[in-house]
């Protein structure tokens, strides 16, 4: 019974960690399938995290915070779009530049506006955060055997953004594989010339994809500062944008496998926290750093073709010129 509780709690921690990863990875999926490398995930998330916390703190409404987060991330996405799509600039450089800029800009604006050394004020008022929704009878269910705890810990007790992220996977899969827009989006990432010949604007499609990526990064960043914690602190994304990119590649640029990769990566994180200093049978104490590095090692192995094969969209990273 003890082990069972432990496993359920581990799963719950996995879901909490997977949510921002999944949102960012889905954001990257839209951008990259259209042929635009999304190295700006980290920056867009961080920008959204700051904007959401700042607006939620000043207005007292987390929904306005979410709006601000989305607007900020979309604005940053448009900067990348303007540089890379309109002016055919280097996509890797643009993404890096926006990320570095935001790493500095968040604490700079935070210091000037709130005078708290670069942080935003604690979000402790009512309605300033996305809090857990407790489903009916969750507390009663917790007392019951096996399925009860699952219901109480996994289905119930999550915040709205978690459910949104979960619903996003089937929805994205539907868009990519069952709609005209999705077909065109995939085509523009593989063979933009063919799309252009068909009379559809390559740049228009790519701008749409980049904007969608911005919107989803807005959700991811808002989750970090208003749901997973109560306010913005510097560098709070802590590489999650790059981890999401790794998940997206590990998921072979497909929605469902990307969900799997996000859950796997989040699980390694939850496990590392759990195993800190715990001696295991046979192997003894496993250094946490090795578990934390596992997602990156796995991604490299996959890219090298040692575990399966990941094939990137053909036209990725190549600016389109007629």
């Amino acid at each position: 019974m003890e082990t069972y509780t432990l496993i359920v709690l581990l799963m719950a921690a996995t879901i909490r960690m997977a949510t921002p990863l999944l949102l960012a990875a889905m954001a990257g999926l839209f951008s990259e399938r259209s042929g635009v490398i999304d190295l700006g995930l980290e920056g867009k998330m961080l920008g959204a995290a700051f904007a959401a916390a700042a607006v939620s703190a000043t207005t007292g409404s987390v929904w306005l915070g979410l709006g601000a987060g989305i607007l900020t991330a979309v604005a940053l996405a448009l900067v990348i779009g303007y540089a890379c799509i309109t002016h055919r600039g280097n996509q890797v450089v643009a993404g890096m530049a926006v990320t570095i800029m935001v790493v500095g800009l968040g604490p700079t604006l935070g210091l000037a506006w709130f005078n708290l050394g670069g942080q935003t004020p604690q979000l402790d008022g009512a309605g300033q955060r996305f809090t857990s929704l407790v489903w009916p009878w969750a507390e009663t269910a917790r007392e019951m055997p096996l399925p009860g705890l699952l219901y109480a810990e996994l289905l119930s007790g999550q915040n709205l953004l978690v459910y949104f992220a979960a619903a996003l996977v089937p929805f994205s899969a539907w868009i990519f594989y069952r709609t005209r827009f999705g077909l065109r989006l995939r085509a523009v990432g593989e063979n933009p010339h063919a799309v252009d010949t068909a009379g559809i604007s390559v740049n228009g499609l790519r701008y749409q994809a980049v904007i969608i990526s911005g919107v989803l990064c807005g959700f991811a960043g808002t989750y970090l500062s208003t749901a997973a914690s109560s306010g913005f602190v510097r560098d709070m994304t802590a590489g999650k944008g790059y981890l999401a990119l790794a998940a997206l590649i590990f998921g072979k640029w497909k929605p469902w496998p990307t969900l799997g990769a996000c859950l796997l990566f989040a699980f390694t994180d939850a496990l590392a926290t759990r195993l800190q200093g715990v001696a295991l049978p046979v192997v003894g104490v496993v250094p946490v750093q090795f578990i934390l590095a596992l997602p990156y090692v796995l991604t490299v192995l996959l890219l090298a073709g040692f575990v399966g094969q990941a094939v990137a969209p053909k036209a990725i990273g190549v600016p389109y010129s007629k």
Binding site: A94, A97, V98, T99, M101, G104
Partner: peptide, 20 residues
Amino acid sequence: INRDMVVVIQGLVILLCGAM
């Protein structure tokens, strides 16, 4: 203003000299 402003300038330089 604090030191983070330098990182902002760094990002802007990369953006304008590299991507734009």
